[in-house]
Design a protein around this nucleic acid. Structure first.
Lengths: 144, 144
DNA sequence: TTCACGTTTTCGGATATTACGATATCGGTA
DNA sequence: TACCGATATCGTAATATCCGAAAACGTGAA
């Protein structure tokens, strides 16, 4: 038996996109009170750990080019959720940091993500979740 | 021990989005010769089995509203990749069907998806892939 | 038959997303 | 100083997405 073992009749990539769309819609619905777009939610979620990041670093995390992030960060800055500071030692870089209101919004986002996740994964064996992460990591690695 | 077993320190939803972005970029790069957008690729991939679908059905498959698909299908129709026919028995519905060139493009897309998938999942145990699908299904179910 | 109501798709309009090329600034180096 | 690479932003353009309304059709009840 050769290495066609992963073939399952389904397309993992199409299933991946479907799941992403479905959860994105769900999250957007639950977070409608925050009045944020999906990109803004994604940016805040990635900043939720409190670590400041440059635009490039954030772009790598969310899978977007720095040019794409500029307008997203514009809105977040206008809303008072982030600040753009200069990094000591390299004034080319812009350090994105959460403000108090940004931290509050990010906390709500993180909590909602965790809740949805727990609801969905409840009852699944730990090996399934481990496999899920293993495949995700493999896909990310393949795409870089 | 309660049911906090799924908590792993990572956010499954953020990881999901990252993997989707990464694979999306990879696929777009490999399929650049087809001169199609990500939405068009997604639509064709879902039609690749040869079955005709209504706009609503296709929308459910790709996770978009019928209004969103209209312009995507407009371009695919202009390019000669699909036809819009009426369904016998219910002339409200529009049946989306692949043309010869659409079938050819869809075949290239399917092949590329399969290749990427096989490269990425090569070496992973079958249980990991099974767990991946189980989690994906759970997430989709949670979002509907 | 006729009419009211639901379904399916499209259209108009609005906003968001995404990115390429060009630009300005900065850091490091010769 | 002059130059090259890195970083972020701006200008511009094509897509993506969706809401509300409209058009066409189907269904069932009066």
């Amino acid at each position: 038996m050769k290495s066609e073992s992963v073939s399952s009749g389904r397309s993992a990539l199409l299933a991946l996109q479907r799941a992403t769309h479905a959860t994105l819609h769900l999250i957007a619905t639950e977070l409608v009170d925050l009045d944020l777009t999906a990109s803004e939610i994604n940016a805040l979620a990635n900043l939720a750990d409190g670590h400041a990041r440059t635009v490039s670093q954030l772009g790598a995390a969310v899978g977007a080019r720095p040019t794409t992030l500029t307008s997203v960060l514009d809105r977040l800055e206008r809303r008072g959720h982030i600040t753009r500071g200069t990094r000591a030692g390299d004034r080319r870089s812009v350090l994105i940091e959460l403000t108090d209101s940004g931290r509050a919004a990010a906390a709500v986002i993180t909590q909602t993500l965790t809740d949805v996740e727990n609801r969905a994964l409840e009852g699944l064996p730990a090996e399934a979740v481990a496999g899920f992460y293993a495949v995700l990591d493999a896909l990310v690695k393949e795409g870089s």
